[in-house]
Design a protein around this nucleic acid. Structure first.
Length: 98
DNA sequence: TTTGTGACCTGGA
DNA sequence: ATCCAGGCCACAA
């Protein structure tokens, strides 16, 4: 696969949209499942063309999103029933398996 | 074109 | 546990 194509972006959008409420996924998992070359590309998509997607269900591998979003993410996730421990998401339980 | 930046990941100190 | 360095890909100036 060469550079990122519309198909890849579409795939990522589908994956993010397919995450059920109460579950979360990591950038690395999405990148791997979508066939992207690097997890960084997923972050790029989120920033540019994922405003209408449940991006708040996407976290980093550390179970903690970016600093500026963390506040919002955790609040929404907690409302959806995602297990949060000490400001960190319990990936072992909330992680969605594709 | 080159450079800097970013909603990342892994591994080592 | 946290911090740093290298690798990764795409974009804006």
């Amino acid at each position: 696969m060469a550079a990122t194509t519309e198909e890849q972006i579409e795939r990522v959008r589908e994956l993010v949209a397919s995450i059920p409420s109460g579950s979360v996924a990591t950038y690395g998992d999405i990148a791997s499942a979508a066939g992207l070359s690097s997890p960084r590309t997923v972050g790029w998509i989120m920033r540019t063309d994922a405003a209408d997607l449940p991006w708040h269900r996407v976290l980093g591998a550390s179970g903690r999103p970016a600093p500026h979003l963390a506040h919002r993410q955790l609040a929404k996730l907690e409302l959806e029933g995602v297990p949060i421990r000490d400001g960190r998401v319990d990936l072992a339980v909330a992680r969605h398996r594709f």
